[in-house]
């Protein structure tokens, strides 16, 4: 029985390497008030990826995550997690999913350890014989062993966040859904959590990470998706997303006014002058000619090149906004 199920999953696991861990088709949620929170979402999270889920506040990220976890019933469309439909297969899917949704929630009158024991007891497929040991390991992984006996209401925000992460790590998981996992942590804590995410990912766990920190996504994630106003704008490998946004031509010069004039004459759009830096949209021709034109015009050039676009540039280009709350 055991061998057979192991063999089954072995095959399934191999097939799943190329398949999607999360896959939604036209997933839509309209709340009772008529507000369309998620609108026809087609999301595909490849197995083994660290997937960054981006979007301004109120863009529907949390509603999407809640639908994936079976907490909210979709109005229409389908969602599959680990190849099985949600929320129908919640009982078989969720034991293999660790989740941190919208920050940690704890019983203040229980100690950190007792909180984890309770969450583990809620999982009917978790072995009670190994419960204490697994809780101990999870506490150790997030660096909370020393504070495990303290009442959770005495925890700082960062410690609560760590305890929430520990509850997601109570058992080996195939998928981790982490909503803003570094919220409330100090820089050292953030680094630790990022290292933990990388470590988990290298173990083969797929990590679905939502964050408003773009550099965090860029540092940790292999794939990303961008949502705004309930719609998915783009998804794919992070490198491709960043490449999608065009870089900017940057000229460093002690003669910025002349340089700006020459660049405009040469067809460079959106020229911006800041002290000794002149930047603009590069034209579709050999940039060497631009440089030659600058030198010919007597502009002294200290530096000349194209700065690669960051994910933030890509994000702003896609959403047409920064991280302001969507109306």
């Amino acid at each position: 029985m055991q061998e057979q199920s192991a063999a089954d999953t072995g095959a399934g696991g191999r097939a799943a390497t190329g398949a999607a861990v999360i896959s939604t088709r036209a997933l839509t949620k309209r709340y009772r008030g008529g507000q369309l929170a998620v609108d026809g979402l087609d999301l595909t999270v490849p197995a083994g990826s660290v997937f960054g889920f981006l979007g301004p506040n109120g863009s529907g990220k949390t509603t999407t995550i809640r639908m994936l976890m079976g907490l909210i019933e979709p109005t229409s469309g389908t969602a599959e997690v680990l190849g099985r439909p949600m929320p129908l297969a919640a009982r078989t899917v969720l034991p293999e999913v660790g989740a941190l949704i919208e920050g940690p929630a704890l019983y203040g009158f229980l100690s950190g350890r007792d909180n984890l024991l309770r969450y583990d007891a809620a999982d009917p497929t978790a072995d009670p014989r190994t419960r204490r040991a697994r809780v101990g390991v999870a506490l150790d992984r997030v660096g909370l062993t020393a504070a495990a006996g303290k009442k959770a209401k005495a925890y700082s925000l960062g410690m609560k966040q760590r305890l929430g992460l520990a509850s997601a790590l109570l058992r080996p998981r195939r998928l981790l859904v982490l909503d803003e996992p570094t919220n409330g942590l100090d820089p050292q804590g953030m680094r630790e959590i990022r290292a933990l995410v990388r470590e988990l990912a290298s173990d083969g766990t797929t990590v679905f990470l939502s964050s408003h920190l773009l550099d965090e996504i860029e540092q940790v994630c292999s794939h990303a998706a961008v949502m705004t106003q309930g719609r998915l704008i783009t998804q794919g490998p992070v490198a491709e997303l960043a490449a999608g946004a065009r870089g900017r031509l940057v000229v460093t010069t002690p003669d910025p006014a002349d340089a700006a004039r020459v660049l405009k004459e040469q067809g460079v759009g959106d020229v911006v002058v800041t002290e000794d830096r002149v930047t603009g949209e590069p034209p579709d021709r050999d940039l060497a000619e631009l440089n030659a034109a600058l030198v010919t015009a007597g502009v002294r050039v200290r530096g000349f090149g194209v700065e690669r676009a960051s994910l933030e540039d890509a994000f702003v280009a896609l959403t047409g906004e920064g991280f302001d709350v969507a109306g």
């Binding site: 029985m1 055991q2 199920s5 192991a6 089954d8 999953t9 072995g10 696991g13 799943a16 078989t92 034991p95 293999e96 497929t125 072995d127 058992r171 080996p172 998981r173 195939r174 173990d203 083969g204 766990t205």
Partner: peptide
């Protein structure tokens, strides 16, 4: 890891 976790569930 995948196999083990599944066997555990089984």
């Amino acid at each position: 890891a995948t196999t083990a976790s599944h066997a555990g569930a089984g």
